[in-house]
């Protein structure tokens, strides 16, 4: 399946876009997505943390994904 991933902060600079269309196996979970992204974009491995948000909530590593999910890559946050 193809998913759309919203990118923010430093991940937007690493990947070079604010949205990424990304190919995943039909049964992919969050952990697989993170591993694939880290392999494709090695600079992501250097970040202090990297989370995935699905439909405006932080996702667990085992959470499965669907093509309709609103997915975002969340580098270390630092508001305030």
């Amino acid at each position: 399946m193809q998913v759309k991933i919203a990118l923010f902060g430093i991940t937007k600079e690493i990947i070079g876009a604010s949205k990424l269309n990304y190919q995943l196996s039909e049964t992919a979970d969050v952990n697989q997505l993170l591993n694939n992204l880290r392999a494709d974009y090695p600079a992501l491995q250097k970040l202090s943390s990297l989370m995935i948000a699905v439909n405006d909530d932080y996702a667990t590593p085992e959470q499965t994904l669907s093509a309709h999910d609103e997915i975002a890559l969340i580098p270390p946050v630092c508001g305030g």
Binding site: F8, I10, I74, P75, P76, V77, C78, G79, G80
Partner: peptide, 13 residues
Amino acid sequence: IDTLKQVVPIWKK
């Protein structure tokens, strides 16, 4: 404010 800094998806450069 402490929790906001930890969980709210906001970034600063």
